[in-house]
Design a protein around this nucleic acid. Structure first.
Lengths: 110, 110
DNA sequence: ACTCGCTATGTCCAATATGACATAGTTGTC
DNA sequence: GACAACTATGTCATATTGGACATAGCGAGT
């Protein structure tokens, strides 16, 4: 995991892992976060692709613009559940989601 | 979605959707639940494959046996986050998870 | 520079998820 | 059928997540 990514995580408010060290994440934690970030990116990508504003998506989703913003920012206060629900709401199917998740793997190989 | 599946959902404590009708779920809600069930099944499958007890997995995961049981039962009180964390802990990679998620699609086509 | 439409960030309180525990049920062995 | 090992279910206190709101930032058009 490179420096840029760490910065991104720090900005998003992650204080992962019980270990004292700054951002000393276990392999599982790392994968989990990568996964969330991949889906966060997918949400933004798909939303924009369909020409929706954050507010519009929020409405469809029964949520609020700020939540959507946080989702796309990969904020630590948003769960996988919400990300996936957002993607499903946007119109994605399980296969699409699977694809985006798989993509999280290649990101790892930087 | 067939009757058996509904029964399974009811047993797991789902009272989905705002609509009054009994288990009247929107397509997105349905997909979301299918997805959770697919992962729940994957957890059980993988755990057993590695000869772990629920208690053992719980320990590795920093959780408790009862949570693992609920996970595998597809209880409504367990989040996607936990399911995925469990799978990662068991040793799955993003690609595996993607595969199980994709599998949720075929289930749909009953 | 002002406004407008969109996005970002921070903070609330309510809602939901979590680990822990207790307890019941199941399955296999003797 | 008693015991042991494992799994299922219920409940609770605490922690995390969620929607809402306020407000700040930002780019484009005028």
């Amino acid at each position: 995991m490179n420096i840029e990514k760490k910065k991104r995580l720090e900005r998003s408010g992650w204080t992962v892992g019980g270990a004292a060290d700054f951002l000393q994440l276990s392999p599982e934690e790392a994968k989990f976060i990568e996964l969330k970030l991949a889906l966060a990116a997918a949400v933004r990508e798909q939303r924009e692709k369909r020409g929706l504003t954050q507010t519009a998506l929020a409405a469809q989703l029964g949520s609020s613009q700020s939540r959507v913003a946080k989702m796309e920012a990969g904020d630590h206060s948003v769960s996988l559940d919400l990300l996936i629900r957002a993607l499903l709401t946007i119109g994605a199917g399980s296969a699409d989601i699977a694809r985006w998740i798989k993509r999280a793997d290649s990101t790892r190989a930087a």
